[in-house]
């Protein structure tokens, strides 16, 4: 990771720094992700701590765990995982996200292996992880079963797969497309294709067929009064997250 940032020219670096600042500005372009990040991290950290019997109050609780963050973007999930002591690979299909994430991690004093690659390519190369973070990606891929199969191949037997996406119903159309893209302008129009949204039942079925045993599912619920997200046991009507285990 040192080598590739060392070869880009100063103007490129300045551009990537500006983009990193944009990714990490809690009130900027990626505000919706920042608003959701605490609950996403609460779910992720508790699931990992539970599965691998780690104490989150201790120092470096995730030491010794190899974690893959698919669709890492600017590193909003990769950095917390590294800070908790994990060995992290951040993968993104968008090439320009990689130097952006690298610059931010280095300035934060964190070592993260960011790569411009896909889950399928890494699976083909035989990479293995204890945890795969698959957050808000599956609704964007063309063949979810093939993609989830690659995620399963990337896990060691008994490894943990955390996957979040958006439910498909009238409410999710209203909230995620009309609300988030058209009214609030939280996301650029066209970010999501509603027909690609997946119901929890469909996702559980796809994961089972891919060799992942579903063990948990929770909803992320936005409260417009407190203007914040929380985790719900029952309400999976729009955003939701699942945990599944590599069958071995």
């Amino acid at each position: 990771m040192q080598a590739s940032t060392g070869t880009v020219d100063a103007a490129e670096v300045a551009k990537f720094e500006a983009m990193a600042a944009e990714w990490w500005d809690p009130t900027g372009k990626f505000k919706p992700l920042h608003m959701m990040n605490p609950v996403r991290l609460d779910y992720i950290t508790r699931q990992i701590a539970g599965e691998f019997d780690r104490d989150l109050t201790g120092p470096a609780p995730f030491a010794g765990l190899r974690i893959l963050d698919i669709g890492c973007g600017g590193g909003l999930l990769s950095e917390p995982m590294a800070r908790l002591g994990a060995t992290v690979v951040g993968a993104d299909a968008a090439p320009r996200n990689i130097p952006v994430a690298r610059i931010h991690a280095e300035k934060s004093g964190l070592t993260i292996d960011y790569r411009h690659t896909t889950a399928e390519a890494m699976a083909a190369a035989g990479e293995q992880f204890d945890v795969v973070l698959n957050m808000e990606v599956v609704e964007h891929v063309s063949d979810p079963l093939a993609y989830l199969t690659a995620c399963r191949q990337l896990l060691r037997p008994g490894g943990l797969h955390l996957c979040s996406t958006i439910n498909r119903n009238a409410k999710s159309y209203l909230m995620a497309i009309i609300g988030a893209e058209h009214v609030m302008r939280w996301l650029p129009k066209g970010t999501h294709d509603w027909t690609k949204f997946i119901t929890p039942e469909e996702l559980f079925d796809l994961m089972s067929r891919a060799g992942l045993d579903p063990v948990d599912r929770k909803g992320y619920v936005f409260n417009p009064v407190s203007w914040s997200w929380s985790i719900s046991d029952r309400d999976l009507s729009v955003n939701y997250v699942t945990a599944s285990i590599q069958r071995g």
Binding site: D25, N37, P38, L41, D42, T45, T57, P80, R83, S108
Partner: peptide, 11 residues
């Protein structure tokens, strides 16, 4: 800290 967030971050 338990979430792995940067404790001095603006958010």
């Amino acid at each position: 800290r338990a979430r792995g967030e940067d404790i001095g971050a603006a958010d």
